[in-house]
């Protein structure tokens, strides 16, 4: 067995200590570790101090705030989310997305915060060190080339967290703790650059996700190689509010096809203000397909992933329209 390279682990019990520890050079957040530890086993992350959030009890809670919003602590596990009655009933698309992650063992360990902040993935990078040695170092490894997109000057690795599109569709807000705590719509935490994919600075961490008190209806879909365990080759979520005989304020979001989630505004305009006929749903799927340009860095090929995006959006919209016509209760 290859031991991990020497590291130090600290588990502060107060937020101020966590902030201070995270501000140090080479520090990284350790949540459930189900992504970080496999990464370290393959010598991918460069950190040398792990700052565990497990000592901050408040981060594990799922609770309703005074104004009715649902606050999910970043350390709530995906298993906690899947079985939580308020989430199953009020925000089922999030429960579906959490259920689509990995295996039962990984969901018992992996947290929502870790899923949202998950390191980006690439077929050329997420490989054992010996395999990687055969290639010149890429942008993420301090080199100057991207093997997936040689013409690009930045890393195009894939944002692979399954809960991300569901959270965007549900209009979640991220709460970041640091010297100056702040809240922002979840989409705004992603930079679009695969190497530094989060707008979370050293000394900051994601503390909670807040979901609206009266969420829109939403649906989530995922495509992967093996239904049992794999990371997404593409995923999508949609949401809208049904009011006065029409869908309003639709959100169509596709992810796992680039370093950040993609809102498909053309599809949103098309879907706003009517019921969704089959033609409209298919047209929205086509717009989603045209809005994404995956690189060849997933497990499956680019054209397949693009076609999958169309199918995922069509099915998610179909799920919502069917549920409206024939509520299952």
């Amino acid at each position: 067995m290859m031991p991990l390279r020497p590291l130090s682990l600290t588990t502060p019990s107060r937020p101020e200590e966590t902030v201070a520890a995270l501000a140090a050079e080479g520090a990284a957040v350790l949540a459930g570790g189900s992504d970080l530890i496999p990464g370290l086993a393959w010598e991918i992350p460069t950190c040398d101090t792990l700052v565990s959030l497990a000592g901050l009890d408040a981060l594990r809670r799922i609770e309703t705030e005074e104004d009715g919003r649902l606050r999910i602590g970043a350390m709530a596990t995906l298993a906690d989310i899947v079985r939580h009655p308020l989430i199953r009933v009020g925000y089922p698309a999030l429960a579906d997305a959490a259920q689509a992650v990995g295996s039962p063992e990984l969901r018992a360990q992996g947290t929502l915060g870790g899923n949202v902040c998950l390191g980006t993935r690439c077929r050329f990078r997420n490989q054992p060190p010996l395999w990687r040695e055969a290639l010149a170092p890429c942008w993420q490894s301090g080199g100057e080339v991207c093997h997936a997109a040689p013409a690009k000057e930045t890393c195009v690795a894939i944002l692979s967290g399954d809960t991300v599109p569901a959270l965007v569709a549900l209009r979640a807000e991220a709460e970041i703790w640091g010297r100056r705590p702040r809240r922002l719509p979840i989409e705004e935490i992603y930079t679009g650059d695969g190497t530094h994919h989060l707008h979370i600075a050293p000394g900051e961490f994601l503390a909670a996700l807040r979901l609206p008190a009266a969420p829109p209806r939403a649906a989530f879909r995922k495509w992967r190689t093996r239904a049992s365990i794999d990371f997404p080759e593409a995923n999508a979520a949609v949401s809208a509010v049904w009011r006065d005989g029409a869908w309003r304020e639709p959100v169509v979001v596709v992810s796992a096809v680039g370093p950040a989630p993609i809102r498909v505004q053309a599809a949103e305009s098309l879907l706003d203000g009517s019921a969704w006929s089959e033609e409209r749903i298919l047209a929205a799927g086509d717009l989603a397909r045209r809005a994404v340009h995956p690189y060849d860095n997933g497990q499956l090929n680019v054209a397949g992933r693009q076609i999958a995006v169309r199918g995922l959006v069509v099915r998610a919209l179909g799920d919502m329209e069917m549920e409206r016509r024939e509520p299952v209760l």
Binding site: L9, L30, G33, S34, I37, A41, E105, A108, Q109
Partner: peptide, 13 residues
């Protein structure tokens, strides 16, 4: 009592 992957779990945690 919960099945967990020991390879991706740091002992100290």
């Amino acid at each position: 009592g919960v099945p967990r992957l020991s390879c991706v779990t740091l002992a100290k945690t």
